[in-house]
Design a protein around this nucleic acid. Structure first.
Lengths: 336, 336
DNA sequence: AAGCAATAGTTAAACGCTTAACTCTATAGC
DNA sequence: GCTATAGAGTTAAGCGTTTAACTATTGCTT
């Protein structure tokens, strides 16, 4: 492979000149620039990234990390939408995207991940908030790598959804339709800040309508479709009088939908089911899901923009992405 | 950050010794090894990957590339299953996963991608077969980077599904149920080899049952759910007597399901709908989809194993992953 | 006792780039 | 005429590893 030196020789200049011309340093004549560019084209020179990284300390690689939790990360469409936003922005800027899915062995982050963080291979990190979030992001911050978190982390720049508003919106929607006997398919406590805010929103909306959140029947799922079906089964068996199921994500709502169908319950006529996230599939279920759009693509986009600002030496403001109630056909007034 | 030299000084040996001990080169006493290891622990040394890469020519990075085609890659659950298999294997081996989604501007691969390939940053490549496949994989092969393709490429090691068998299986299933008036929701020609094989399988099965493939009504989609709905609408309007819809992927089948529901057609009683891929969502639609399981996870797993074999200097055999008919509830005999 | 192989470790060059510090005009200001 | 400054380019010192080639010691053959 041709090196800087080959280009320099061919263009009749020094390697420093080539390097600087290539990085658009000022103070070169057009003639010199042209000579260099021509030589580059002629011998098909492409910079060696490892050498560049070693010398400059920058790798042009940013990592997206999501702890491997519950089921496979790649199974969660919500995360993929975020990824897409990130990918698009990185592509635009000529950065490369590395994916890291640290395994968590008994609470400890895996060794490979730690090595990667320490290795100097990463110019920046975008981390998805999840259970063992601190343990994943802390090494990054300690090492001083620019990082932004999606979902919030006290010590980091972050972009998160307005989950409190989301909780209020979806619960309000149910209440305004006239539902009172509402089952909730939730996830284990302390999963992340977002979930707490969401639950608080639901609680507040309930209270505003004179309903006590703590009295509402609940089932605990794990975000997966299957757990949604299980939760629905359990809830409907113990509380056959429920008129609505509020699910903390779309996948669990899809499971609930499936279970309702299995039980011969027509949605939304006999049972209202709502989701959260607005993943692509939510629009194509039968019936399509009423849900909360988190604007995942925007979230990914904003996260990368924020990271690039950080890399440019700026101090960006943490951002809160507004959410939106999307009313489709899985919700209707309860039957009297 | 501490360097090799710091470790060497502390352990009272040369940097070469440290480097070799760390890479398990033979001919060192236990005492020396321990001294080195102790020093490493004490000062928290982590190798600098860029330096290592420059010096050794290996980066510990492998790239998964999928051309950006139609809609976002990240929207395709089938691909994500494959990714998961790849990710798991890379994680095990301590390799890092870089994702590249080259944009295709007027048939040409984007410049960033080409640079990445040439840059020496990649130890290996796994490429997903898609429309402009050659243009994406050719630079990789030319550069001599170990590569495996998923879906088949004449010049490369590959792992692919037995699409011909898949086509036969799904069509046979329909025919054996007694369907004859079958609509096909397909994709544009020449998308990739896999699709051609699949169509050939369908054709062969049709012929074996005395049905001429070319006479079957067809609609052309683009893999997306929406295009499946459109295709179904179009097909059912022009051919109201159809008793089954064979869709070339699950997402289009989900769209068809949705359209059937909109038209008030009960599936499978009044209309049979089948998919292909067996993405996770296929099991949770209402009704769950009859489809072909491509074993996407295995595919990803095998692809990375093959790549690692290649990196180990072996010459692996290209592999064909068997497929499997998964009969769920979206298919039934036609009404008489 | 010489020769050799195996063991244990070192030296120093190389990997390909960036960049601080430097040189050498040419022009401008006073 | 002398200094300052801006423009155009070069020199050479790293960046932190790996690794080929080398030295030195020990033990075993013959």
């Amino acid at each position: 492979m041709p090196t800087l030196e080959d280009v320099a020789r061919r263009a009749g200049v020094s390697t420093a000149t080539v390097s600087k011309v290539l990085s658009n340093t000022p103070y070169f004549t057009e003639a010199t620039r042209n000579k260099v560019m021509l030589a580059v084209k002629e011998i098909g020179y492409v910079p060696n990234l490892a050498a560049r990284a070693l010398s400059s300390g920058r790798t042009q690689i940013i990592a997206v990390v999501f702890p491997y939790v519950y089921d496979a990360i790649f199974a969660d469409p919500r995360i993929l939408c975020v990824m897409e936003g990130i990918d698009a922005e990185c592509n635009l800027r000529g950065y490369n995207l590395l994916i890291s899915t640290p395994r968590l062995i008994e609470g400890a982050v895996d060794e490979n991940y730690l090595q990667l963080i320490q290795s100097g291979y990463l110019d920046g990190v975008i981390a998805l908030n999840h259970v063992p979030f601190a343990s994943v992001l802390d090494p990054v911050l300690k090492k001083g790598i620019p990082a932004v978190s999606i979902g919030g982390h006290a010590a980091a720049y972050s972009v998160s959804s307005d989950h409190h508003a989301g909780g209020v919106l979806i619960m309000q929607h149910l209440l305004e339709l006239g539902h009172r006997r509402i089952g909730i398919i939730t996830v284990p406590d302390n999963i992340n800040i977002g979930t707490e805010q969401l639950l608080q929103g639901i609680r507040d909306a309930a209270q505003a309508h004179g309903l006590n959140f703590d009295d509402l029947p609940k089932a605990v799922g794990d975000y997966s479709t299957a757990s949604g079906a299980d939760g629905a089964a359990q809830l409907l068996q113990q509380h056959p009088d429920l008129t609505a199921l509020l699910c903390l994500n779309d996948r669990m709502a899809m499971g609930a939908l499936q279970e309702a169908h299995r039980l011969g319950l027509r949605v939304p006529d006999q049972l209202t089911i709502t989701g959260y996230d607005d993943i692509p599939a939510a629009a194509t279920t039968v019936p399509p899901l009423t849900t909360i759009d988190q604007h995942s693509l925007t979230t990914g986009y904003e996260a990368s923009r924020m990271l690039f600002d950080l890399l440019d030496g700026q101090k960006p403001e943490s951002k809160i992405i507004p959410v939106e109630l999307v009313i489709r056909s899985s919700s209707a007034p309860p039957i009297r």
